[in-house]
């Protein structure tokens, strides 16, 4: 298994995902015979250093959310390892842990959700929403919780007087701030943000992104940032991993990936990023065809039916992830020999 050793230090990385897989069985009939597998996440490996932000990008349905949820163990991975450096007891593999074993670790990793409307229980007011993590993790004193909730609301830029209000009294951006406050209540070290701004207006997006950056600096957070908007990723991430149909196709630090992509899929994604300069005319690479279904992927390289550079070997052999320069991994048979362009500016 090729896996990126982005970290040259001897110390283990903060979070290391090794050949993570998540398969969903396709069953048929009354007896639920398994007739096939949907490989939602197929052999994905990456690692994050403490205090950095890893961006996970790809089209919808490529498995990036599933990957993020497996890392948090909201889903049970089919295989692979998730090595997490805990605050007190060294490195732990999260993948095989049971619900009960996970509970003490939960407070170290939290999630920010995409939908600011679905992720807050409409029956609870702000105090209950933000204070619940404290309550279930051993802070039964209401007064103490109130103080902490007020502090958290202040941290995300909401007025503590709103504590008695219900979510329906807030706008999308404000709700996302509430979600962030709830995620931060337990002082987590890893925060998985699943498209935290894609449901928001552009003007609000910037505010929330800046809030996330500010919080990272102040609290030393490590982010796993799932997104499909590359301009957002460029703004916030230190490293980027690109996924296509459940597989990792390219990973590198943000600058390298954006300015010299080595995978044709990455290049086509980058060409779709709008350039805020009317004089520049980008030669957009338009992909033909559709994203294949992970239940029935094409043979060889999953991308070859849509790839302009596909050769015979692409149709039969699945490319392995290999290192083209330090910290830059690509899974393409022709990596390095293609005239690919990153973003222009």
């Amino acid at each position: 298994m090729a896996r990126p050793e982005t970290n040259p230090d001897p110390a283990p990385p903060f979070l290391e995902v090794r050949s993570l897989t998540k398969y969903y069985p396709i069953t048929k009939g009354f007896r639920r015979r398994v007739t096939g597998l949907v490989k939602a996440v197929d052999d994905v490996s990456f690692s994050i250093r403490e205090g950095e932000t890893m961006g996970l990008v790809g089209e919808s349905g490529c498995g990036k959310t599933t990957t993020a949820r497996c890392v948090l163990r909201a889903l049970e991975p089919t295989g692979g390892q998730i090595l997490f450096q805990t605050a007190d007891s060294g490195t732990v593999d999260l993948a095989p842990l049971s619900r009960r074993e996970l509970r003490p670790l939960r407070r170290q990793m939290q999630m920010i959700f995409q939908d600011p409307f679905g992720s807050l229980n409409p029956r609870m007011n702000l105090f209950d929403i933000v204070g619940e993590p404290l309550l279930v993790n051993g802070m039964p004193n209401r007064k103490e919780r109130q103080e902490r909730v007020a502090e958290l609301l202040g941290l995300v830029g909401l007025r503590p007087e709103y504590m008695q209000r219900f979510p329906h009294a807030f706008s999308g951006g404000q709700r996302q701030r509430i979600g962030i406050a709830r995620a931060l209540a337990l002082n987590p070290r890893l925060v998985v943000a699943d498209e935290p701004v894609s449901a928001l207006d552009v003007s609000v997006q910037a505010q929330v992104l800046n809030l996330l950056l500010e919080l990272q600096e102040r609290l030393g957070l490590t982010y796993l940032f799932v997104a499909h908007d590359l301009s957002v990723v460029k703004h916030i991430c230190d490293h980027v991993a690109v996924m296509y149909v459940g597989k990792l196709v390219e990973t590198a630090d943000t600058k390298t990936l954006f300015y010299s992509p080595k995978h044709p899929y990455t290049a086509s994604l980058l060409s779709a990023v709008p350039i805020p300069d009317p004089r520049l005319r980008s030669e957009g690479i338009e992909l033909s065809g559709e994203v294949p279904s992970p239940a029935n992927p094409p043979p060889g390289c999953y991308f070859h039916p849509r790839c302009a550079y596909a050769i015979d070997v692409c149709k039969t052999q699945s490319p392995l992830l290999r290192q083209v320069s330090p910290g830059h991994f690509v899974s393409c048979h022709r990596a390095g020999e293609l005239p690919l362009q990153g973003i222009v500016t």
């Binding site: 959700f113 229980n121 993590p133 993790n137 979600g179």
Partner: peptide, 8 residues
């Protein structure tokens, strides 16, 4: 899911 993740 959020309730699950905060350890309820």
């Amino acid at each position: 899911l959020s309730a699950e993740l905060v350890g309820c």
